[in-house]
Amino acid sequence: MQATNSMISIKGVNKWYGSFHVLKDIDLEVAQGEVVVILGPSGSGKSTLCRTINRLEPINNGAISIDGQALPEESGPLSQLRSEVGMVFQQFNLFAHMTVLENVMFAPIQVRKQKPAAARARAIELLDRVGVGAQKDKLPSQLSGGQQQRVAIARALAMDPKVMLFDEPTSSLDPEMIKEVLDVIVELTKGGMTMVVVTHEMGFAQTAADRVVFMAEGEIVEVSTPEEFFNNCQTERAAEFLSKVL
């Protein structure tokens, strides 16, 4: 697509788990400020694709670059690049032995060498923004799933990332908490953040996505706008998927 302002560029990516071909010749460009939602049945490789973008999953061949920079091979530059890519996990993964505030302050202090006072002020601001400021001194285990996930989003935002990756952010939440997390993510899309969101929330894809990527069996089957995808999808596999989830 737009080669000039491409924030994430994925070219010819293949990945195998043993003999299982999880990602097949994936090509995807995500422009700066664009929100791309990846849909597809479970086992289609969409989570794996999301995790290859910051190399939590190594790939067998192909090339991925972020903001024009190829994913580094060496651990130092790779860590540097990861610090600019926010990631939100299905299982929240808050540091269990740290308070909410400490969770958000940790990487800015340890990775960005920010002064504790500055990191603290920024963390409190972010926690207020996602609506969990009152919980700042609690441990993650004392929070509901929805609150934990909002803390996890604040933790990622504290690094001022160029890109945010969401790997099924609402899949392990109780139904009544899904909305509070999606509201925070939708709020972010309005701020011009480049985002890749793997999700099963069709409503979210319809309202928040700039583009929808549909994956099945390790391949990108269809890429289109949400209106087109949900009203007039081009492939049989997408139609079959939509008939099951809508």
Binding site: S79, L81, R82, V85, M87, F89, A107, V111
Partner: peptide
């Protein structure tokens, strides 16, 4: 849980 390490790594925290 594996996620503890992944979360740190994803934030750019070194080994």
């Amino acid at each position: 849980p594996k996620g503890q390490k992944e979360a740190a790594v994803a934030l750019g925290v070194r080994g």
